[in-house]
Simulated scan of single mutants.
Amino acid sequence: MHPETHLQLQHVRAADLRAEADSYRLATEAGNPGRLRTRVGWTLVEVGLRLASAPRPAVAAC
């Protein structure tokens, strides 16, 4: 990949991350921290369920 193209993609990604961070900041300043809290909570639930579930049995390939 050409270095200039790679650099441009990094700039676009950084701008996206800044915009997302601003939206979280505005939500918490507006007194609505529930969006981030809910998202983190469900992520933790998903991780817990994956850890608690029984591993699938290995299938032998013949």
Results as ranks from 00 to 15, higher is better:
Leu49Trp: 03
Ala60Lys: 09
Glu29Leu: 15
Ala60His: 05
Arg25Val: 09
His6Asp: 12
Trp42Pro: 00
Glu20His: 11
Ala21Gly: 08
Arg35Glu: 07
Ala30Asp: 09
Arg56Phe: 01
Tyr24Val: 13
Gln10Met: 11
Ser23Val: 12
Leu7Trp: 05
Leu26Asp: 14
Val47Tyr: 01
Asp22Ala: 15
Arg39Phe: 01
Ala27Leu: 13
Arg25Lys: 11
Ala58Cys: 02
Asn32Cys: 08
Arg35His: 04
Met1Arg: 09
Ala30Glu: 05
His2Ile: 04
Asp22Asn: 15
His11Arg: 15
Asn32Thr: 09
Asp16Tyr: 03
Thr43Leu: 08
Pro55Phe: 00
Arg18Thr: 07
Gly31Cys: 04
Gly41Gln: 07
Leu36Lys: 11
Leu9Ala: 06
Asp16Arg: 14
Ala30His: 05
Leu17Asp: 07
Glu46Arg: 12
Tyr24Gly: 04
Val12Gly: 00
Leu26Ser: 14
Arg25Pro: 00
Glu20Val: 02
Leu51Lys: 08
Val45Ile: 10
Pro33Asn: 04
Ala15Asn: 12
Ser53His: 06
Ala14Glu: 12
Pro55Asn: 06
Val12Asn: 08
Asn32His: 14
Gln8Thr: 10
Val40Phe: 00
Asp22Leu: 15
Gly31Asn: 03
Arg56Trp: 00
Arg35Gln: 08
Val47His: 08
Ala21Val: 06
Arg13Cys: 03
Asp16Glu: 07
Gly31Thr: 05
Leu51Pro: 01
Ala54Thr: 10
Gln8Val: 08
Pro57Phe: 03
Gly41Tyr: 02
Ala15Cys: 11
Tyr24Phe: 14
Leu26Cys: 08
Leu26Gly: 06
Val45Arg: 07
Thr43Ala: 14
Asn32Asp: 10
Val47Ala: 15
Arg25Glu: 09
Val12Gln: 12
Ala21His: 08
Asp22His: 10
Thr38Pro: 00
Ala21Asp: 09
Pro57Ala: 10
Pro55His: 02
Leu17Ala: 10
Arg18Val: 07
Ala15Ile: 04
Gly41Trp: 03
Thr38Val: 02
Asp22Trp: 07
Ala30Ser: 14
Ala14Met: 09
